[in-house]
Design a protein around this nucleic acid. Sequence first.
DNA 1: CTTTTTTGCACAATCGATGGTGCAAATAAT
DNA 2: ATTATTTGCACCATCGATTGTGCAAAAAAG
Lengths: 354, 354
Amino acid sequence: MKQQGKKKATIYDLSVLSGSSASTVSAVLNGTWRKRRIKESTAELIQNLAEQHQYTANLQARGLRNSRSGLVGLLLPVHDNRYFSSMAQTFEAQVRSHGKCPVVVSASRDPQEELATVATLISYSIDELFIAGATDPDSVHTLCEAAGIRHINIDLPGTKAPSVISDNYQGARMLTQAIIKRFDDSAAPLRPEELFLFGGRNDHASRERIKGFRDIKTEMLGQNSVACIQPTGYSPNMTQKAFEAFYEREGKLPRGLFINSSINFEGLLRFMAQHPHETFADLVVGCYDYDPFGSFLPFPVIMIRQDSESMLAKAFELIEEARPAVKIHLIQPELVHPRTALKGPLDSIRDIDA
Amino acid sequence: MKQQGKKKATIYDLSVLSGSSASTVSAVLNGTWRKRRIKESTAELIQNLAEQHQYTANLQARGLRNSRSGLVGLLLPVHDNRYFSSMAQTFEAQVRSHGKCPVVVSASRDPQEELATVATLISYSIDELFIAGATDPDSVHTLCEAAGIRHINIDLPGTKAPSVISDNYQGARMLTQAIIKRFDDSAAPLRPEELFLFGGRNDHASRERIKGFRDIKTEMLGQNSVACIQPTGYSPNMTQKAFEAFYEREGKLPRGLFINSSINFEGLLRFMAQHPHETFADLVVGCYDYDPFGSFLPFPVIMIRQDSESMLAKAFELIEEARPAVKIHLIQPELVHPRTALKGPLDSIRDIDA
DNA sequence: CTTTTTTGCACAATCGATGGTGCAAATAAT
DNA sequence: ATTATTTGCACCATCGATTGTGCAAAAAAG
């Protein structure tokens, strides 16, 4: 009703008001009161008081006592791209539906920062940690292990905790194949030296994708030169420079382009800003990531949508197990043809339409 | 060195190991030891022990004692779009640089969920809250107020706490003007009934944008009919339906399209997926939001980049003030011409290039 | 060699919630 | 009316860190 002073009501306040002991109040308000054989009328009295005084439990106190916090963490490399932000969105919904509180943090793909961030989360006694796209999942594992925190790797696998990742090899094969096929009814079919891969670095995902790319390329086009693979890291800037360098050297872009991630794709955007439309006339891009806007660019863009919903679902399933096997679970990604607008987590949010 | 058992070391463990009292250990490890006149050698001893045993403070315990947590919250409507995810990215960096721990949560633009989420954050004794894009900032204010939590509105203003928002009116004027000008050297200049606004609803931002749109349209094209304004909410799906309905009715799209947000723009994407390229031949889109991929679509897309960095910087400045005035601070957004790839928060992340 | 001052630290209460234990009063069984 | 059960709840220690207070021992002053 009224919010009386400035400070929040505690069980002690309610204890005084109700004439019961603090432990009774506690039991009533955390739902264990039947187990503690509290009279129904007492419970009701206290519940009413709690409501009137807008009582909410101090979760730090509860967490301290329980050495659990109700927090579930998701560690991301970055927020600022559709793959991870949509993962965050899905994660939140999932965690909420389990009655816990989601905490999403990013660590910039920096091993130091990853460890520091996780250490902080552990200090808040988070209950579980989902480690997505960590550069050094095994060190993170060591921290979690020492703190007894259930954890699981997503997107990039570790060797010490169960991992759920997208099937990068298969995905890369699908994507590479789709790029090549796209040229089937073109006047000039794609030659091997016209199909390049840009982006990524020496992480598991990149390696698998490169392998898939190489294998299909060899199968379908008969060969693959290592020169056709340019791991430029995960920065738009370096990727742009790589494109500029290529263009400088060759006077044109490759006709077929496998781009390792949407972040690398942004490097191509930067390149595009510097060059006229015609530069991209005969281009087909395959991007290992899905971005709705990216799908509608002026040239055909084939994308891979990683199934982060399924990855998270599997991860939640595993983390619930008593002693999940330390193995890698592959989730199949989806090939997305050009000019496709997929539904996303936002579609389950109700708006004025609902 | 070794991580001994399973449980984390506490000041009591270190107290025993060092032969000092827990309060001394505490003082040493939280930096207040000079104030407490602890001998330097004692401090060193304890610090070494702490390091050896990988001591980290239990932040819940500290938070309980201090009734502060070191957590700083950012409440978002959704993660899954570039405006908010890049805000999250910037926010994290800022909070980290203040030595605090960022917590980003989303509430789906649902007033109920906003309140529930904030209540949870308050229960964890977060120190400060940045409320971005809340549908009901004033109710959130009431909660924060009652809990004595410093807070500030971003993106959508409230009437009870200081607000930092983008200058939606000016931005909309710039954007509308740019759309119209884009037709200047076209064969047929844009007529008023060819310029529509889609998206948004009855929030402050939408109202301001609609006002800016209407004013410029009247100024430059001589009139504006209310029929040219279609607030479809913030869902891709409803926006798509609105486009379909329009197309059904008119047999074409408007030549000039002001789209209220990138989320609404995704509605246009869905529409695009259903219609051939030609449908968009003579189209100019202005979108009140910036998305790098959106900037490179096959038709001219003029975008407004809201300056979330400046908004956050201003917000941090205000929240630090003792009693900031309850007023609205406007931050100028930036007009982004078609085919422009701006730098973003990711560019300050070092990669293998750094 | 006292008295005063400073140094260095230990003690204990506290933050709010939890849950094991124990004990009266109410009820049931004999 | 007694004894045995059950019901209903209060008491208290505990989680880990913080901080005001107080008190010895060491150093300085006299």
